[in-house]
Write a protein that binds this DNA or RNA. Structure first.
Length: 271
DNA sequence: AAAAGCCCCTGGATGC
DNA sequence: TGCATCCAGGGGCTTT
């Protein structure tokens, strides 16, 4: 579900509201991808310092340690004062004096994991091999991006998705960014010229930034911290548009499978 | 090191 | 209506 824009929209929605809050209780529901790694009761009394994002992970900084949260394919977070009783898909609650942070995740590919810090082995394993942040201008450089692509033989779509070159680009935005750059998703990354890599670099940034502006995409489960849907899906040029006319040239959009994931592209606009 | 497959899990849409 | 099949914003882990 949630790619970088949706995770960032989620973060923006509650980071300021939860910063400074005191944890009063925590509860876990059915098992998520990984166990919390600490007794929920042991979090009580801790203060929440703030919320950062790394790729598609949220890092909730506590006085001692931090909480890594991931939304998986179907997760979403809510933050509210009067949260009410947890439903069948509410699998983690962090109750604070400012409100309750609740993770709802039907498929349970998401997670909430407590670690001592970013140097905790568990954190290193999850965050240590992530690529650069696409919206960080200092970190995401066109020339470095091109050089990284030169070392990869797999199709560019799968390199974008892998997250070890650049993070946060999921299945929707990979297709959208490649369309914006006019690059065929099946093209081997190493065969992309410097000018085209530069164009893709810009397209990745622009696509993600625009999606954040529009509140992310809502296909099925995603809603922001207050339960509202995103709107970027309405602007998708190729994703989930198989058979429909390309908005630029009217050629039917094609759908293919790459690494068990759907890819959408325009066979005329993307070479 | 890189690439390719396999899973984890639930629910909605589609087809017979 | 009932049931089987397919598909879905991810990504860690194992095997080549």
């Amino acid at each position: 579900m949630p790619e970088l824009p949706e995770v960032e929209i989620t973060r923006l929605g509650f980071a300021d509201r939860i910063a400074g809050a005191r944890i009063q209780a925590a509860r876990v529901g059915k098992p998520l991808r990984w166990p919390l790694g600490i007794e929920p009761a042991a979090l009580v009394g801790q203060q929440v310092l703030g919320v950062r994002r790394r790729g598609k992970y949220l890092l909730v900084d506590l006085q001692e340690g931090l909480l890594l949260m991931h939304l998986g394919m179907s997760g979403s977070l809510r933050f509210a004062q009067d949260m009410g009783a947890p439903g069948g898909h509410d699998h983690f609650d962090l109750v604070t004096d400012r409100g309750t942070l609740r993770l709802n995740d039907p498929r349970r590919f998401g997670a909430a994991v407590f670690v001592d810090g970013e140097r905790d082995p568990r954190a290193v394993k999850l965050l240590g091999s992530l690529g650069v942040e696409p919206l960080d201008e200092a970190a995401f450089r066109a020339d470095v991006f091109h050089a990284a692509l030169q070392r990869r033989q797999s199709p560019i779509k799968q390199v974008l998705l892998a997250g070890d070159v650049v993070v946060g680009v999921g299945n929707i935005y990979a297709s959208e960014a490649l369309f914006a750059a006019g690059i065929r998703p099946t093209l081997a990354a190493a065969r992309i010229s410097r000018p085209r890599a530069t164009k893709l670099h810009a397209a990745v940034r622009a696509t993600l930034a625009r999606a954040v502006e529009r509140g992310g995409s809502t296909l099925r489960n995603f809603s922001n911290i207050d339960g509202q849907n995103g709107h970027f899906q309405l602007e998708a040029k190729v994703y989930a548009r198989a058979g429909l006319a390309c908005t630029v040239c009217a050629t039917p959009i094609r759908k293919i499978l790459q690494g068990q994931r759907s890819t959408f592209y325009c066979p005329n606009c993307q070479k």
